[in-house]
Simulated scan of single mutants.
Amino acid sequence: MRFVEKTAESDTLERGIDAVPESDAIYLEWYSNHEENLAGYVISRSIFEDRNFVEIARIKKITEFELPDTTFIDQVDSLNILDRYYYYIEAIDDFDQLGEPSDVVSYKLVPKPILGSPRNVITQTSPDFTWDFDESFVPNAFVFRLLKRNNQKYFYYFTKLSLLRDDYAPHQQWTGDELTLPTPLPSGTYRWRIDPIGAEENQGAESIWLDFTIQ
């Protein structure tokens, strides 16, 4: 068994262990096992890297028309912000026999930023983007993500990894030029997000998506 390798923070195709925008949760992704007697997968978690792992989920083998069996979102109430969690996965067969455990991966969630503007309907084609980081955590950098809607679907329009200014404050206001965003933006509906990145490996969060429309 093997977890999918985590992609770079600014990649538009996000793979591997990560935060999620919908909630304070950790996303896990692994490569499928193709053994004929595979029944599913067992996921174990600990707050320690090498001991005290506890089974937290069993994912049954995929069958036609069901959800994929190689991803899992860990969002139980006991998941605490700023604690690092370690995971491994094992295949399990029809006789409840476990295979060799995977490598151990880990992630530490940080508080989500709160997005301010732009939102709703605006007329500016070069808007400033504002948000607030939580006062309990100072990120090392952040990823700005912008999607544009086309035929009822959203597609990546721009993404950028940026370091924070020297005069850091929780409230952030960035112009399109500071984000190196191509402006003016054409009319249409957009969706944006801020992903703070910590100084440690696999440490971060993803804000909720916020929509705005340029008339």
Rank of each mutant, 00 (worst) to 15 (best):
Y31C: 07
E36P: 03
L79A: 07
S44C: 06
F53D: 08
W30Y: 02
D77N: 15
D24P: 00
Y86E: 04
S78A: 09
E66I: 08
N52G: 12
F53H: 12
V42D: 10
S32F: 04
L79G: 00
E49M: 12
F65Y: 11
H34S: 15
F53E: 09
I17T: 15
I17R: 09
Y86K: 01
F48T: 00
Y86L: 05
S78I: 07
N37H: 02
E36N: 07
R51M: 13
S23A: 14
E64V: 02
L38P: 08
R15I: 02
G16N: 07
T63G: 03
A25L: 04
T63I: 11
E14A: 11
R15Y: 03
D77C: 10
Q75N: 08
Y85L: 02
L67G: 09
N33E: 00
F53Q: 10
Q75W: 00
L82S: 00
S23I: 10
E29Y: 05
Y27V: 01
V54Q: 15
T70R: 10
E66K: 15
S46E: 02
F48L: 00
E66F: 11
A39Y: 14
A39C: 13
D74M: 09
D11N: 15
K60S: 13
I56R: 09
K60H: 11
R51A: 13
E64D: 00
I43L: 12
S44R: 05
Y31H: 15
D74I: 03
Q75M: 00
I43P: 06
L67W: 06
G40N: 12
E22C: 01
I59N: 10
Y27G: 00
L13D: 12
I81H: 00
R45H: 13
D83Q: 10
S78G: 05
R45F: 12
I59T: 10
S23Y: 11
F72P: 03
F65H: 07
S46A: 02
T63E: 06
D24F: 10
A25N: 01
Y27S: 06
I59C: 12
E66R: 15
I17Q: 09
V42K: 12
A25E: 06
N80L: 09
A25G: 03
A57Q: 05
S44Q: 05
A19N: 14
P21R: 02
I56G: 07
V42I: 14
D83H: 11
T63V: 09
L28Y: 10
R51F: 06
T71S: 05
P21I: 04
R84D: 00
N80R: 09
D50E: 08
L82N: 01
I56C: 09
N52C: 12
S32T: 08
I17P: 06
D18P: 08
Y31D: 10
L79V: 11
L82K: 00
L82M: 00
N37Y: 01
N37K: 02
D77R: 14
L79W: 05
S78R: 04
V42R: 14
Y27T: 03
I26L: 01
Y31E: 15
D11C: 11
E64C: 01
D74Y: 08
L38T: 08
D50Y: 07
S23T: 15
